[in-house]
Design a protein around this nucleic acid. Structure first.
Lengths: 117, 117
DNA sequence: AGAATAGTTAAGCAATCACTTGACTAATAC
DNA sequence: GTATTAGTCAAGTGATTGCTTAACTATTCT
C-alpha cells in the first residue's frame, strides 16, 4: 500500500466505518461521553473505545478526561480537509467536462483529447 | 459492523485507500485507460483492476470498454455525496460552537448544556 | 498468420480490521 | 467502606483487504 499522504489517509480510513460515522454524527450535535457514544451502538464498550482511538488518531475527534468521564468533541479541521480534497477532485473534473461540452458544441466531429505527459 | 447507509459506506471505503485516491486524482484531470491508471502505481495491473472494481462499486468511477481498451472517468455525484455529508457534520458542529461562544460571551459563569433525550 | 498489447480471472497469502471476553483501575454514590 | 459507574488494557478470533503470480481471452499491429 502506498502512503504518500498519511493524514488524509487516516481521515478517510476513519470515516470508512459506519459505526465511526455514526459517532461523528452524534458528536456533530454536541460533545458526548464515551458511554453516550456507545449507547446507540450494538457493540461492547471496548469496541467503541477502539473506534474512538481511530477517530482521535485521525484528528477528527478530541477528548479530555474529567473525573471518571471522558468527554469527546469534533475537531472541524479534519472534516474540512477531507471536504476540500473531495471538492478539488470534483470541481476539476466538472470544469473539464464543461470545457469539453463547450468544445463539442462548437465543433461538428468527435473530439479526441490528449494531454498525458 | 453496522451498515445503515450502504452507498455512503462504499464511497468512504473506496476513498480510504491511497492508491485509489491517487487513481481518483488522476481521473480528475481527465479520462484514462486502465494502463494509464496503473502506470504511476507501484503494483501489478490486476491489483489496479481490483482497485478499479472498488471505485466502480462505490459509484465514484465509471468505465466503458471500446476495443481492447477500457476508458475510465469520474462520476461527480459520489464525490458530492461524501462532500455533503462532511459539510453537514462540520457546519452543524461549528454552528453549535458559535452559539456556545455567544452564550458564554453573554454569561459570566460556565454553561452546562443538556439536550440528550 | 504471428507477435505484441490491453485487460480479465482465479487462487493464494500475509497483514489488518472489527469485534469479543475477561481482568483491571479509578471515581462517585449510598 | 462497599457497590456501582465509567473507562481501560490485553489477548484472541474470524472476516476482509491489498497484494501477488499464473493462465487466459480479445484486440490491434506487422
Amino acid at each position: 500500500m502506498l502512503n504518500h499522504d498519511a493524514p488524509t489517509d487516516l481521515v478517510f480510513h476513519a470515516l470508512a466505518d459506519p459505526s465511526r460515522r455514526a459517532m461523528v454524527e452524534r458528536l456533530a450535535t454536541g460533545p458526548a461521553s464515551v458511554s453516550d457514544l456507545a449507547r446507540p451502538l450494538p457493540m461492547s464498550l471496548p469496541a467503541v473505545v477502539q473506534h474512538l482511538q481511530v477517530l482521535e488518531a485521525s484528528g477528527l475527534v478530541r477528548s479530555e478526561k474529567a473525573g471518571r468521564v471522558r468527554t469527546c468533541h469534533l475537531e472541524p479541521a479534519g472534516l474540512r480537509m477531507a471536504e476540500d480534497w473531495l471538492r478539488r477532485q470534483r470541481t476539476a473534473w466538472e470544469e473539464k467536462l464543461d470545457r469539453l461540452g463547450d468544445y463539442l458544441a462548437g465543433q461538428a466531429g468527435p473530439a479526441h483529447q490528449e494531454e498525458s505527459g
